[in-house]
Each structure stands twice: as C-alpha cells, then as structure tokens.
Design a protein around this nucleic acid. Structure first.
Lengths: 114, 114
DNA sequence: AAGTTATTTAGGAAATAAACTAATTACATA
DNA sequence: TATGTAATTAGTTTATTTCCTAAATAACTT
C-alpha cells in the first residue's frame, strides 16, 4: 500500500476546504452568508473584528471555493457556493464511513454487470 | 442579531472536530482506520513520520471524539468513531446549505400541527 | 532481574496562522 | 479635481502548530 492509496489531495481542494472550515470565524461567515449575499463591509460589521482581518478570512474562503465575490461599483458582494462544500464533506464522509460501503459495493457490482 | 444567533460552539465539539480534520495527516489516519482498528505502531508505520508525531495526531483525533483507544496488554488499539464526525459534518451542512431549508421548514410545520 | 518492545511525555526549533495598524487602490460624487 | 467611502495589501507582532530527538513509562520475555 503506497501513499497514494489513501485518496486525498495533499495541497488540493479538500485540504483548502477543511483548512478554511477549521476557523470558527470562517464557519460563522459561511453561516451568515447562507441566507443571502452580503458585502465585505456588512460581513465585517457583523463580527467583532477589523476589516482587514475579515478580508483575509474571505480570501481563504474564496480560495477554498466556498464563496464567490462579485464587484458591483464600489462594493464587493460575497455569495456562498455550497457545491464544493457539500461535495468535500460528503466525499470525506464516504471515504471514512464504513457504513456506506456495502451499498457502495453493491452499486459498483451492479454497474459492472451491465 | 447577537453573536449567539449563529449556532456554533466556540471551543466546543464542532471546533475540535473541524480542527482535527484540517490536517491531511489526520484525515489520512481516519481513512486508514475506516476499515479496521489498528495499533498505534501500525498506524505510525504506515506514515512517513516519527512515532511521537503520530501519537500527537492520535491525541488530537481522540480529543475530537473521532477515534477511541483501548489498551490491550502492551498495545494500544485505535478505533474510528464515526458518530461525532457524521453528526458534525451533517449539522454544519444543514446550517450552511439553504437547499435543505424548505424541507426542514415543512417538517417543522408538520411536527407543530400534530 | 534484565532486556526488549510499544507508546507516550517533555522540551525545543521551525513553520504557519491570526490579529492589528498604516498605507494603498478603486470607485462615487460634490 | 478634491473628498469620502469601500475594500484590500503590506508589514509587524504574537500565538499556535508541527515536527523532531531524547527520556520516561508500561508491559511483555527469557
């Protein structure tokens, strides 16, 4: 069993996602964005933190593909992107949770027999 | 909206779980444990790292409630505990993913009307 | 008892992350 | 153009994390 057997991308997408999620501030920002898009300023105002710090967190979230930004005039609007989040969490859960294996094997077997 | 509105435990369970998952090494260890329990030595041998380092990672995972240890004679056997992992990932996905809200509201409404 | 193996603890060096202030860029408007 | 507002970048400080080696603890074996 070599090191690639464990299917995880070192500096890759999953790493960036999990790293982004390791901060409570960033998880709160994501939750805060779950209802609607907001500007950087609105987000900063919500949290007891300097604007540059919030900006830094937003960059981390964006690099992880968890949010997207759109500049409209003077403002930058941030929107949550749930796709990558859900795929990453789900992918990891599948990888780690033996519970799902029987069904997975069943499905793979079925696919082959076609 | 005060700061408790965002339902996340600061130094609590979710924080420890997400923090544990932020390390590729630790995610690999979890994946490696997904098939069967292993001793600390077997885990250390699998990864290109000193035993004390692995031991440290195992402690982090254990404090997050993601693995459990059992001493049998000279050996310490580690086992994955999927419960806390799945609950935490799922709980966060629910909190952040607006997609699930309509169904959630529907279900809540139904519960109230009983 | 003495030696061997398994694992963890202690301590310290190097890298990373997180926060702030100050300065800068970009846009809007008087 | 000058002024104000929004947001980011730069640079610094402090705290945390991660890794290692060496030493300690615990349990087997002869």
């Amino acid at each position: 069993m070599n090191d690639d057997t464990l299917n995880q991308d070192a500096g890759g997408s999953a790493q960036r996602v999990f790293n982004a999620l390791s901060s409570l501030h960033r998880r709160k920002i994501l939750a805060y964005l779950s209802a609607s898009s907001l500007t950087a300023g609105e987000i900063a105002e919500r949290f007891n933190m300097s604007k540059p710090s919030v900006s830094q967190h937003l960059t981390v979230l964006e690099n992880a593909g968890l949010i997207a930004k759109e500049k409209r005039g003077q403002f930058v609007h941030y929107t949550i992107v749930t796709n990558n989040l859900i795929n990453t969490l789900n992918g990891f859960a599948q990888e780690v949770c033996p519970v799902s294996r029987p069904l997975k094997r069943e499905s793979e077997a079925k696919a082959k027999s076609k």
